[in-house]
Design a protein around this nucleic acid. Structure first.
Lengths: 137, 137
DNA sequence: CTTATAACCTAGTAGTTCTATAGGTTAATA
DNA sequence: TATTAACCTATAGAACTACTAGGTTATAAG
């Protein structure tokens, strides 16, 4: 399951992507239109700025804006920052790999083999979709 | 992320599937060979029995055995019982649908459209794989 | 008939994660 | 100088996870 944080983060990015190029959007506006708790959203946007997706401007007329073109922002990158690993088990994660304590060998693990397939199919979908693709409506 | 419960459940089913047809396997044996806490595993196998995947026999020589052929057990079914929804958001779940509180309309939601794609690709993989497929080694 | 075995059942709990909220500070603009 | 809006730290309730404890019931073997 996707956390609320990730869901809100994607919705916020999508909202920002729809604005006229470079125009900053306030947290308050996103919070209002997307029905997201403003304080919670603040922390999410801050994280997205620190990880290089957003730029910010303080004071009146300030807000957050995209640093890169929506076409250049893959959903894999967004989800990895907000949610963490895309894989369903750490032992098949490309970016957050961790060995299983209970498994003797990954080659003979039934879960491992299955989850590699799931990971690859998910990765394909999220890799093909950019912010531009999902921020159309 | 897959819960330990689901992971252990799949490993256990896979272990049982490799036994000579109909031969009961004890919780203790699975626990030992798969490095799973026995008490925790007990509760998982009990759940799998109650949901119609396993049969059981008490007393010496007892244990759990598959009720259906491994080829007939789709991984979608297993995961839905142990983990719950396969979808990453309730609003795209086929079996556990729930409407979002924050979304005005699903048609215009960027997360919704993306997560339908993820769901379908995951569903394809898990629907094509049966217990027979993953319990080969 | 007794003993051993192994499933079955209920309850609880420590630890973690999630989803925020509170209450400020800093920097930019008017 | 006042206002605005991002920035930062800390905290807290609720839910969930991954078990553990401590039994009871049913079956099989001797």
């Amino acid at each position: 399951m996707l956390s609320k944080k990730t869901k809100y983060g994607i919705k916020a990015l999508s909202f920002i992507a729809k604005q006229p190029e470079g125009k900053p959007v306030q947290t308050a506006e996103i919070s209002r239109t997307q029905n997201i708790s403003q304080k919670f959203l603040e922390s999410i946007l801050l994280e997205l700025r620190k990880s290089g997706f957003l730029g910010s401007k303080k004071g009146k007329g300030g807000g957050y804006y995209l640093i890169k073109e929506p076409e250049e922002i893959k959903m894999t990158a967004v989800i990895r920052i907000l949610e963490g690993p895309i894989a369903m088990v750490p032992c098949v994660s490309l970016n957050y790999y961790e060995k299983c304590r209970d498994c003797v060998s990954e080659e003979t693990c039934s879960v491992h083999a299955l989850m590699i397939q799931v990971r690859d199919s998910t990765l394909k979908v999220l890799g093909e979709n950019t912010l531009a693709d999902i921020a159309v409506k």
